[in-house]
Design a protein around this nucleic acid. Structure first.
Lengths: 192, 192
DNA sequence: TTTTATACTCTGACTACTCACTCATCTATT
DNA sequence: AATAGATGAGTGAGTAGTCAGAGTATAAAA
């Protein structure tokens, strides 16, 4: 039934978009530059993504999925809360340091106001297991009393971001920062 | 010496820019919309700011200065480290919650890559006293051993941001979040 | 197996539009 | 009178998205 779309071209466009967005910013990046770097015609970009907005949303979901994989794969379900959170933490920080462009684009997308509700929802779906871990920890009174659950996950993200910024600044200190960052975080939330 | 520039017009432009940037994003916001909302002609904007980039940088400095004032005014130099940090924390969180648009624009500016080195430097200058407090605390071994100094200040910002997000989401919980946020932070960095 | 029909993709020149910035003219201040 | 600000229609550069014609992978027919 006719010619199918090529998965390769789609990926090439998403890859090029990541590069161009990271370099020039979301709105300053012309779709023409993206198609050029992807090695396809300008029009082709629009057979894979109806609008630039669509491309943005698709890229967001793609990156979030990759990040979720980095954080959640091998999740030590049976180990202690501390070890589970540490696993997620390491996955996040290591991914962010190894994928600076994607992390940068993700940060831009997060504040862009151009993401649909559906994309945001789809992007946070793979992290339910982590949310469950936190809920579980709270119920078992492993964490400091009176801590709102949202503060726990929000601050881990914020904390990891700060840690990654520092690692990028001084890569030689990576281990110290990653370790130290989690230490502060854990000391902050764990029961005295 | 002819007609002088009006401080009022400059402020009107900066105010309008804050509103329009917060609503539409840095690059999607047309200068024409800004001048319209400021009640001046399109050309006038460019007698006060040579380029849109200039406007961005000026706005950044302006907001940072206001934020610094909110955080550092009444700084309790002679009190304990905990109280000094708590003062800065409260100033930050309260300002951020009360100035959502400015905070949003600041976040966008921070990731925009459109700020000059000079602006970034000028923007962090008013915070030296806080840096000194932290340095002092480290020297006096009040904080957890082996914590890199940059991690302390970076994480406070990250933490405060997360706290503000939550307060905006559930304003009724403001006190609990602000208190709880600082508690985690302090428990994280203070010596056991 | 080969041919044909079909329904899609690919292409890049083109369109319609938006934007940052200019400038000739007017106007307020000193 | 002299000087610099204020105005807004105008300019040129650049943009997202379109479209008609060419190409190609697939299924059905021969």
């Amino acid at each position: 039934m006719a010619r199918p779309k090529s998965e390769d071209k789609r990926n090439a466009i998403l890859d090029a978009a990541t590069r161009v967005f990271a370099e020039r910013g979301l709105t300053a990046a012309p779709t023409s530059e993206i198609s050029k770097q992807a090695g396809v015609a300008e029009g082709t970009l629009f057979t894979y993504f109806k609008t630039k907005d669509d491309l943005l949303n698709a890229l967001y979901r793609e990156i979030k999925l990759e990040l979720a994989d980095a954080m959640m794969s091998g999740f030590p379900r049976r180990k202690s809360v501390r070890i589970r959170l540490r696993h997620v933490w390491d996955g996040y920080v290591n991914w962010g340091v190894a994928n600076r462009e994607k992390r940068k684009v993700l940060a831009q997308l997060n504040v862009s106001g151009m993401l649909s509700k559906e994309s945001i929802e789809a992007g946070s779906a793979p992290f339910v297991e982590m949310q469950n871990t936190i809920r579980d920890a709270i119920e078992r009174h492993l964490l400091r009393k009176g801590l709102p659950i949202e503060l726990i996950s929000k601050t881990m993200a914020a904390f990891a971001e700060a840690t990654m910024d520092l690692i990028v600044l001084k890569p030689a200190m990576a281990n110290k920062y990653r370790e130290g960052g989690f230490e502060i975080y854990w000391a902050g939330i764990a029961r005295k």
